[in-house]
Amino acid sequence: MANKITLNLITCRTIQQGVGMEAGKTSKKYFDACTIIHMHPEDFKKLGAWKNTNVKVTSSVGSVIVKAVETREDLVPGLAHIPMGPWANRIVPAYTFSTGEPCFKGFPVDVEVATNERIMGAIEVVQDACGLIRK
């Protein structure tokens, strides 16, 4: 039985994200680089999920579907990382504490398995939130 776990999330640049961005926001490289959440092996166990399964990540402002992967750059258990981009920003709290800077690093999220959910495209994920997709 899959569970829901709470993690501390940070969003950062990765070189794959940079390359993907320059290859084009609609490119597969960008999609592959940014639609993932890096998690520690122990958190995979707690979640009861295999590597490379789709998960739903929910913060105080919304949720997004991404793929859970094991990180190359070591995290500590309880800390997770989604590369910066429109997917990560679906859940980044916009409040800035009067500094102008939103909370890109260090906010709590719930992670649960969502094997059958589809990951949206880069433009779709923004247009969807803005109500610009016509059904």
């Binding site: 961005m21 926001k25 402002v61 919304g62 910066m84 981009g85 429109p86 920003n89 679906r90 859940i91 980044v92 709290p93 916009a94 939103p102 880069a122 923004v126 939130a129 803005c130 109500g131 610009l132």
Partner: peptide, 16 residues
């Protein structure tokens, strides 16, 4: 620049 990709979504919903 591309705020659509790099601003929190609530800011972009307002922008849209």
């Amino acid at each position: 620049t591309d705020p659509g990709a790099h601003f929190p979504i609530n800011a972009m919903i307002s922008s849209s």
